[in-house]
């Protein structure tokens, strides 16, 4: 549905490309992407929604190359992108205005947009947040409201850039539950193996500008003892 074909990207003033002759297609799956800091994960997502233009290669959406502004508009109304920082995403004074922003841009009348926004908030368990001031929400609330602003546009694909950053375990498990119940394709960047194991079916790894599908069976849930109670922890990866 959404595909990057033989794409390379070099940042201005960088000596070597960050992504090199890379092909990636969002299949009917929940894909996880891992890789060290600075390996180009966010760059990959930005290329997929046209925030960055590939130095080489092409972007395809629904089998057609994305070339014109109209193509890009069509792509963006069907692909939602949850940024790393919710403060970059929530710019309206109140929650309801922010969630209704997308539907209004899609041409819904104010009353319809409000209904869509209220419904989206309800589905995420955020009823009563309508008139809250966006910059006064807590980090976890901001993240969920940011997700609502995107889901209100009813996208077919959802891209999430490190969604669990700075979330407490409770909000993280709430996010997991929400994502598991969403019937749309998802691409999730994360360093959180536990989170990926719950939310994704396929795992990709970015390494030296290339992307590899990880072998099946690498993502799994297992029972084990936590040495430090129920504190968050890192699993030994090898």
């Amino acid at each position: 549905m959404l595909e990057l074909r033989n794409v390379s990207y070099t940042y201005p003033q960088a000596k070597s490309p960050i992504l090199h002759n890379l092909s990636f297609c969002v299949e009917n799956e929940h894909a996880g992407i891992i890789g060290p800091n600075g390996c180009g994960k966010t760059t990959l997502l930005h290329l997929m929604v046209g925030l960055l233009k590939p130095t080489e290669g092409e972007l395809f959406f629904q089998g057609e190359p994305v070339t014109t502004k109209l193509d890009m508009y069509n792509l963006r109304r069907q692909v939602g992108f949850l940024f790393q920082s919710s403060d970059d995403q929530l710019f309206s004074p109140t929650v309801i205005e922010d969630v209704a922003f997308g539907p209004l841009n899609l041409g819904f009348a104010p009353a319809e947009a409000r209904a869509i926004a209220e419904n989206t908030l309800k589905n995420l368990g955020l009823t009563g947040f309508e008139d809250r001031i966006t910059h006064k929400l807590s980090g976890g609330e901001k993240k969920l409201v940011a997700l609502a602003t995107i889901l209100a546009m009813r996208p077919k694909i959802l891209l999430l850039d490190e969604p669990t950053n700075n979330l407490d375990p409770k909000t993280t498990s709430r996010l997991i539950e929400i994502l598991q119940n969403l019937e749309l394709r998802q691409v999730i960047i994360s360093h959180d193996w536990d989170f990926l194991s719950h939310t994704t079916t396929t795992l990709y790894k970015i390494d030296h500008g290339h992307i590899h599908k990880c072998e099946e069976g690498h993502i799994h849930v297992h029972r084990h003892i936590h040495k430090a109670g129920d504190h968050p922890h890192v699993h030994n990866l090898k």
Binding site: D88, I96, E97, F101, N105, P110, A113, M153
Partner: peptide, 24 residues
């Protein structure tokens, strides 16, 4: 930089240079 990222977020949500008020 934040301004640039907010602009990106708005573009991704179909912003075309005109703010439509929710309550008219």
């Amino acid at each position: 930089n934040r301004g640039a990222r907010i602009h990106q977020a708005m573009l991704l949500r179909g912003f075309n240079g005109h703010l439509i008020p929710l309550t008219s």
